[in-house]
């Protein structure tokens, strides 16, 4: 079942988030140069890292989809990229706020990480329009997977190219955790873990919701005695839908598979 373990995962996420936030506000020392403002680092960097890892995860799931042709892999790839886009918006906004606070501008072109993140975000922003523009669900899934793999490979390449292009690297607090003092590094790692848990929980939530909706639709149709005809009732959407008829039939199989 999709919903299995969701409660435990949610509780773990809430606990980790609470721990991370209390570490951020009560344990981590104030930064000597930036003061309180630097605390946004514990939110911004984990958001960005989790979003980028989610994009790459979406590419790996898309590879699994192209290899097996199982629509459930496409669904997972879609959810991973969808959630990463939301996290990406968060990373861009917090990054902007941080840039305004420390450098005085909402946008700074000399910060290569921020610029490459924007380019990656703009590329992934076309993922849903691409899906939406293809009607046939099988082809939509296949083309979306091709896009997801291309874009997933583009993520590291783009970071290398933009980093090369920036004439100098801005003085910055982030980078690797090795140059952070101990308490800061610990707080950062806990924040990162909490953010990754949040990502996993939200992904699982979305998968469960989509699965439940498909099951509900199939059950209602069986109650009304309709012939299951997924194609006729399918509304146009960017999100993949699991075929309801197939879901009920292979429920046992999907239970073991998941």
């Amino acid at each position: 079942m999709y919903g299995k373990g969701l409660r435990a995962l949610s509780i773990a996420t809430v606990a980790a988030m609470a721990l991370a936030l209390s570490l951020v506000f009560f344990y981590a020392p104030l930064d000597a140069e930036q003061g309180f403002l630097q605390k946004i680092f514990y939110l911004h960097v984990p958001l960005a890292i989790v979003a980028l890892c989610g994009f790459v995860l979406g590419a790996l799931l898309a590879i699994a989809h192209l290899r097996t042709r199982d629509p459930r892999w496409d669904m997972r790839s879609y959810v991973a990229i969808h959630m990463s886009l939301i996290f990406g918006v968060g990373a861009l906004i917090t990054g902007s706020i941080w840039a305004k606070g420390s450098w005085g501008h909402w946008w700074v072109w000399s910060e290569p990480t921020l610029v490459s993140f924007l380019i990656v975000f703009l590329l992934y922003a076309t993922y849903q329009p691409l899906r939406f523009a293809i009607e046939d669900p099988e082809r939509q899934a296949r083309y979306a997977s091709v896009f997801a793999i291309t874009a997933g490979a583009f993520v590291p390449l783009n970071f290398m190219a933009v980093r090369l292009a920036s004439a100098y690297v801005h003085p910055r607090v982030l980078g690797s955790t090795s140059n952070l003092p101990g308490p800061m590094a610990l707080t950062f790692l806990v924040s990162l873990a909490a953010m990754a848990l949040l990502y996993a929980t939200l992904c699982k939530f979305e998968l469960t919701a989509k699965h439940t909706r498909a099951q509900l639709r199939a059950l209602r149709r069986r109650l009304l005695g309709e012939i299951p005809d997924a194609q006729a009732r399918r509304t146009r959407s960017a999100a993949p839908t699991l075929q309801p008829g197939a879901t009920v039939g292979t429920q046992a199989a999907s239970r073991t598979a998941l």
Binding site: L122, L123, T126, L130, A133, I134, F147, N158, A161
Partner: peptide
């Protein structure tokens, strides 16, 4: 090839292509 058999192909082609071509412009 990705955009040609979609409904909004004239829109999607440039939208998909431009971010992918940014590193070429940089180099």
């Amino acid at each position: 090839a990705l955009a040609v058999r979609t409904r909004a192909r004239d829109l999607l082609g440039p939208l998909l292509g431009l971010p992918l071509l940014v590193p070429i412009v940089i180099g």
